[in-house]
């Protein structure tokens, strides 16, 4: 029950993109087409879950016992960037077709603050390993939903006659605001 609450909380109520404002850069960058946003979402989900597990283990078995809490940000970001590098290398060798689909998104993920944000939130909320994994899945699904919804809308907007001042990022922001209004409706669900 608790796990379900964490999962749905991360997807709908505290949607990473629309309520917590994490991962906005890829949200704007790759949300022009549904196809690329699906690829990005898959890459993020993959790295997100792995990062949740590894950062949790580092916090629990290295930083916490040695009283090195102040090294958390440094340690986490190093882990995440090495993880991304590692996944990229392995994927290129082992699953070249998958790499072709997701590869171009991987370098973008290091600076996706949704990943580091998720890792820090897991520690701040005091989640155990299982809760952290569920939270990371919720975060990734929430990210994917927001990204794909926006991409769908933007694909149509391309064909619309938007005022030239609002073309591109400006109208995307306003659309995101309206989608965010819709997500506000999920508050009070749990």
């Amino acid at each position: 029950m608790e796990l379900l609450a964490i999962l749905f909380g991360a997807i709908f109520i505290n949607n990473f993109v629309l309520t917590r404002f994490l991962g906005i850069c890829p949200f704007l960058g790759v949300s022009k087409k549904v196809e690329t946003s699906v690829g990005m979402s898959a890459a993020v989900t993959f790295v997100m879950v792995m990062a949740a597990i590894i950062t949790w283990l580092i916090q629990e078995y290295i930083l916490f016992p040695l009283d090195l809490g102040y090294l958390r940000t440094v340690a986490f970001i190093l882990v995440i960037s090495s993880l991304v590098q590692f996944v990229e290398t392995v994927m290129r060798k082992v699953a070249p077709t998958l790499y072709e689909g997701l590869g171009i998104f991987l370098p973008l993920i290091t600076t996706n603050c949704a990943i580091l944000g998720m890792a820090i939130l897991n520690i701040d909320e005091g989640y155990n390993i299982l809760e952290s994994i569920v939270h990371s899945i919720g975060a990734a699904v929430g990210f994917a939903i927001a990204l794909i919804i926006l991409a769908g809308i933007r694909e149509r907007l391309e064909l619309e006659d938007t005022h030239k001042l609002y073309h591109g990022a400006a109208v995307a922001m306003i659309v995101a605001g309206i989608v965010s209004v819709a997500f506000q409706g999920f508050q009070g669900m749990i």
Binding site: L18, M173, I174
Partner: peptide
């Protein structure tokens, strides 16, 4: 949050 997006859009 919606206000943030809309404000930045403007």
């Amino acid at each position: 949050p919606p206000g943030a997006f809309i404000g930045l859009g403007f």
